[in-house]
Design a binder for these strands. Structure first.
Lengths: 208, 208
DNA sequence: TGATTTTCTTATCTTTTGTTAAGAAATCAA
DNA sequence: TTGATTTCTTAACAAAAGATAAGAAAATCA
């Protein structure tokens, strides 16, 4: 995908958070970087500091971690959303998980260094402060929703919620990753899927 | 507790997020409000929009919700931390839960209206943008930690984590609220507590 | 294509949690 | 203090999830 197209898409997608006149956009864009990852390549690796706040133009990633050899998927991010290891990015602590592309994925990214430079840039400073705040707030809203799903919903409900996002990439995500995302084992998700199928027979099939 | 003392404590507590010269502080403080709630009084009620970003000077609150008559505690906030229904505060949507004082609690609060006024205030605008961003980032870090605890930890581990915060108010929080916070039933927490006691006999007691 | 590897499902058994109900303990108010 | 109410614990059973292993299905690759 062409760099210019990606930047244009990015400008369009973020305009609810920050808008520019041409001079500002030119300055802002000079701090941006486009990035492409192949399937299973890492956006960041566990143990390293995440120094990028990126936006997915196309593709998807999963957050995953190997603890004692067991892999955990904590989260997915799909296209048109921001992605970073937020705590690591903010605090400079090492990231606790990998962020890996689920398929070929295109990003527009701001390094922490460039973010800080922009916060000192006379033309951009205030707008970027605001942008940073709004992005951070977006993460808060996502987190609150996801946390609520863990507190008030069952694994089965979380699975149905994920299906209802309607994103067709969900159908292509390996079941084991989905299970980890929901917070259960793949075996358990298999049982849930079976249970759902049994309770929603196809219209042509009578149940005895 | 005296208003002046509370504001002074507040200024001290938030100085890692925002600092002021005296003129700025005088302007900033004029937008602040102090607030006291008795036990079980609501900071916000479910169904209403949360219009306050508060800071707990002393006391604690719990986030709770009655769904189909069943009460859920989603979160606790203790002294020296910010409290708000972040999604409601940010989006203006109705809050999905009550935030109730667990005991007599003292707050320093900024209304959304005043926050927005400060964001337009020539003396405060940029600093408050930054403050807003940093507070939002603080919430992100808390959320990430809490979410991780749901994904990688068992209810028993979450309970032990809570005990290890060492806050003595934890000992005074009704067990049922703690159970809800952990994401299990009070019955289940009772069993966990028993299990823990059995596995850590007091030094004076021999186990047969 | 066919062989190999990976992923997914199923089965069995164990552990944990939920549900309901009953009794003990603690709290609160008169 | 006493009685009433609420909260906490325990028990019994049902439902769900974890662990392990084995087989089926799908994907990968030569």
């Amino acid at each position: 995908m062409d760099t210019t197209i990606m930047l244009t898409l990015y400008r369009e997608q973020i305009k609810s958070l920050i808008t520019f006149n041409d001079e500002e956009w030119y300055a802002f864009a000079s701090f941006l970087k486009v990035k492409k990852l192949g399937k299973n390549e890492c956006f960041v690796e566990a143990g390293k500091v995440c120094k990028e706040l990126a936006f997915i133009i196309k593709g998807a990633v999963r957050f995953c971690n190997s603890i004692d050899g067991i892999e955990i998927t904590g989260y997915f991010c799909f296209e048109n959303s921001f992605v970073t290891s937020i705590k690591s990015y903010l605090t400079g602590e090492p990231c606790l998980y990998d962020i890996k592309a689920l398929e070929e994925t295109f990003f527009v990214s701001i390094s922490k260094e460039n973010m800080q430079a922009m916060l000192l840039h006379p033309l951009l400073s205030c707008k970027v402060e605001r942008f940073g705040r709004l992005v951070s707030e977006k993460f808060n809203i996502l987190f609150e929703d996801r946390l609520k799903s863990f507190i008030v919903k069952t694994p089965e409900e979380r699975y149905l919620d994920l299906l209802e996002t309607g994103k067709d990439i969900v159908k292509r995500i390996p079941v084991q990753y989905i299970a980890q995302f929901i917070g259960i084992t793949p075996v358990s998700l298999s049982r849930i899927r079976k249970r759902i199928l049994e309770n929603t027979p196809s219209p042509n099939k009578t149940k005895f």
